[in-house]
């Protein structure tokens, strides 16, 4: 045999055990840390680093909600019959997918407060807005693709049954589209979580910002940044496995 033809289910099973182990160890650490702050290096740095965790998580949460809403609305508009709605949503998607998220973040945070816009946002609001609009633009393409993948016959049948466009969207199109949407949305959620680290560059005190601050006050650079990488990994990897599980389920469902 020259090579493995496919990744067996055995590896996925191994992966799940691995994650459960990580979660148990992680929870144990968390409980332990609440009881008494750890003194063993490098874990003594954890309490200061984790001070930024709530910012990272709430950025992810609100960014994801905004992205989801924006993606759904824009995705539907992009499949609409009106040329105007289709072009407006198309321009939005191309602008946000065509430029870097960091540029968008800087634009929203540094340029919006100036003339002629005069819209001052807090760093947190700017972060949520940039993340939501950027990831929402990618999500819109996912929604559009899922809607397009629905067989023509179903739409023709709905028209034959004299359904209104709203009813057709709610009863026929979205329930089928959502199954296709979920795994890619899970991937976008992971991208969004990773992108929250950019908010540290506009002075938001997320975990990355805490690490940069600790670097200046404590030093111990290797420990700080290794811990930081592991913090992101421990949040993102369970999400990755969740997405894979969804993908597997979808393959069985179809």
């Amino acid at each position: 045999m020259v090579a493995r033809f496919s990744v067996g289910s055995e590896r996925i099973k191994n992966g799940i055990f691995f994650v459960i182990a990580i979660l148990i160890v992680g929870t144990a650490f968390g409980v332990q840390m609440l009881a008494e702050p750890p003194e063993l290096p490098p874990f003594d740095l954890l309490p200061s680093l984790l001070r930024g965790l709530s910012t990272t998580i709430s950025l992810t949460f609100w960014g994801a909600i905004l992205a989801f809403v924006v993606a759904l609305i824009t995705g539907i508009l992009r499949s609409s019959q009106s040329v105007v709605l289709r072009s407006i949503s198309g321009i939005y998607v191309e602008i946000f997918r065509g430029t870097s998220i960091l540029v968008q973040l800087f634009w929203i945070y540094f340029v919006l407060p100036l003339d002629p816009f005069n819209i001052s946002l807090s760093a947190f609001q700017a972060g949520v807005l940039a993340l939501g609009l950027n990831v929402g633009a990618y999500g819109a393409e996912v929604v559009r693709g899922a809607i397009q993948a629905i067989p023509r016959g179903q739409i023709e049948a709905s028209i034959a049954l004299n359904m209104s466009r709203g009813l057709m969207l709610r009863r026929v199109i979205l329930p089928q589209a959502i199954v296709r949407i979920l795994p890619p949305f899970g991937n976008l959620l992971i991208e969004l979580l990773k992108a929250t680290s950019l908010a540290s560059l506009i002075t938001l005190s997320d975990v990355t910002f805490q690490a940069l601050t600790l670097r200046q006050t404590v030093g111990r650079i290797t420990e700080i940044f290794t811990l930081l990488l592991f913090i992101y990994f421990l949040i993102a990897y369970p999400l990755t496995l969740g997405v894979r599980w969804l993908e597997k389920r979808r393959q069985w469902a179809t």
Binding site: K194, F225, Y237
Partner: peptide, 8 residues
Amino acid sequence: RSTPLLVQ
């Protein structure tokens, strides 16, 4: 893949 490029 599970960690941000910025942190790397």
